[in-house]
Nucleic acid binder design. Sequence first.
DNA 1: TTGTAGGCGTTATCAT
DNA 2: ATGATAACGCCTACAA
Lengths: 380, 380
Amino acid sequence: MARVGRAQKVGKSQLMEQERVKGDTYSGNGPDAGAGTALMRDVAERAGVAISTVSRALANPDRVSQKTRDRIIAAAAQLGYTPNAVARNLRKGSARLMMIVLPGPFFSGASQIIPGVLEGVAATLAAEGFNLMIANLDRSEAVERHILDLAYGGTIAGSMTLASYLPQQGARSLVGAGLPLVGILQDVSGQGVPSVVTNDRTAMRDATARLLALGHRSFLYIAAPPDNYHEHERFGGVQAAIAAAGLPPAAVQRIESGDSFQFGLQAGAATAESYLRIPPAQRPTAIIASSDDAAIAFMGYVTRAGVQVPGDVSVLGFDGATVGAHLAPPLSSLIQPARAMGNEAARLLLAQLSGAKIPSVVTLESTLAERGSTGPAPTR
Amino acid sequence: MARVGRAQKVGKSQLMEQERVKGDTYSGNGPDAGAGTALMRDVAERAGVAISTVSRALANPDRVSQKTRDRIIAAAAQLGYTPNAVARNLRKGSARLMMIVLPGPFFSGASQIIPGVLEGVAATLAAEGFNLMIANLDRSEAVERHILDLAYGGTIAGSMTLASYLPQQGARSLVGAGLPLVGILQDVSGQGVPSVVTNDRTAMRDATARLLALGHRSFLYIAAPPDNYHEHERFGGVQAAIAAAGLPPAAVQRIESGDSFQFGLQAGAATAESYLRIPPAQRPTAIIASSDDAAIAFMGYVTRAGVQVPGDVSVLGFDGATVGAHLAPPLSSLIQPARAMGNEAARLLLAQLSGAKIPSVVTLESTLAERGSTGPAPTR
DNA sequence: TTGTAGGCGTTATCAT
DNA sequence: ATGATAACGCCTACAA
């Protein structure tokens, strides 16, 4: 019953420039390196029972006599037996792997929202014995096809998406794959996908109302790109508060720059530059940023130019980046429950798997943390 | 030839506190919701050929006549056929899925090193048609077993680890699973695992030498936990530079706080507190932090206390967090090539898969970015 | 309680 | 060039 490891072809390691390589080399784990190649049939043989009995002993221990079960467990342990999950998945028609589709790179800026969501998702899934696979949706057709292959090819049991665009090709689509699906951060319930979101609009409205209560009457809003769902919601919240206070829409000036939501830092710096060109007496007294990155970069830029925060200008961020609390001054921000959203999304996914009815939208609250970058409007 | 979707049991969605749920509910994708359930046999039937011919037409197009191939492709397209990857994996004995083991939560702080590494890994793997699965190694035996099950169960084709501890249980171990394995950030080549690291020690030594050249003679080093590989290397580099300059070891004071590398922000703040208790004339003139988080928090804290950076004290970080460039002053730091390390690790993994010899250690350079938080030592 | 046998969907070997 | 057939490793009626 000879079994060998995976086949090995000859290949070549491509190395990058600007790197050093230690002299000696490593040959990889050759064929037969692993000891864990024992099969169920080996366990059966060793325990002197049929394969099916082994299968039962492992899956339904109570349907096998105590004695044989012990023998089987012992044999399995001795052989270091591990069930082949691929064969099991094929047989059972389902995998224990979830996919999460990200809209692009997930390591820009300091807000940590996406890592936080991932962390929450992974934790909840792990508790149920599910694994998490990540896929990046960078708008190439190849990637889109790949994602659909995964969805239709039995590899995954369900999927989450942080993107508002859902991949589709011809008759195939992520929505139509018959798999549990959940949107996170973006509300895609309009496309029939249950979603976990935060209350961007009302959170922003309330925070703006708070700034109004502090005496601010002139605002600068640092926008994310206009096609962004969050953008619409967040700016809408600002406008709502302004209107409710009886101020004209022009009380808030919306500044847009950059063409990706990831570029918050640049947007913040660019906005600061514009801000500094305004004669001091006419400057808005409060900055509302659509992200902490934008807020931090704005604050850094104007601080270096000698502007006092919050003495001359208040700055409010959105995200609740941990690092914000450690700046000078500490950044006031709307804290998104990133990890909790991840937890909840995973829960909804698992609930769908078990056929439960689930809400089409779950909203978790973002909460205002007034730390130090916001204060009373300056008197002029 | 009736086929049904996955089985559905009745379950219940557990909801969190502090959340609102939109009224209507979503029933999930029930059985038979997907159209993509066509099998190879269906394609064969429609094209009027044998299953094996379909398999060949899809895998080795040149071993099938032009005419039948076209018929098959057309049939597959019409049916929206997607090959079942699970069945293929079982048959071929290999999967196209890589695992990356993280030592714990990966969303703390602002340094973005781990997200950056993940991004690089995912990008390189995706280009080769491989997927990325993430696993968190939080030191529970259950998790460890789970990871080993994945490694031994045919689910994954290889693994990377950001942890220095490699899971093992009895006879099974990640190293012994016979799978390609690569360490990232941590040098685990001593355990026989090829590793991709950065030159912590020499980078830190050179950066310290630079501070010495700026006239600094008294240093405070904000440490990571002592069991951390980076910590040893980085502090070693500082000490080496101090010694090379002919200064006594006491020229650098090492401050340790917190018990996890993730808690850099807290460590920085705590260190700042200690720093402020030192009489101004006796304060070290340069702070060297083992992470940007620590550096940022230190800088924020002392700035709020009225200390000038870099006028009174220079601050140097390690990581190259993007946000650092946008602070006041911009943070000087050693920029880790996080994404490149991810790329390289994935490359090494794939190279092992094809049986190539690969280096046991690949070192990518961290580069010093002098931005604004470091400057000449104050004259007293 | 245990064993036998068939099949999950694909690939690969062997004939034809 | 194409078709029949036997695995891949496991689970699960069904039979004993």
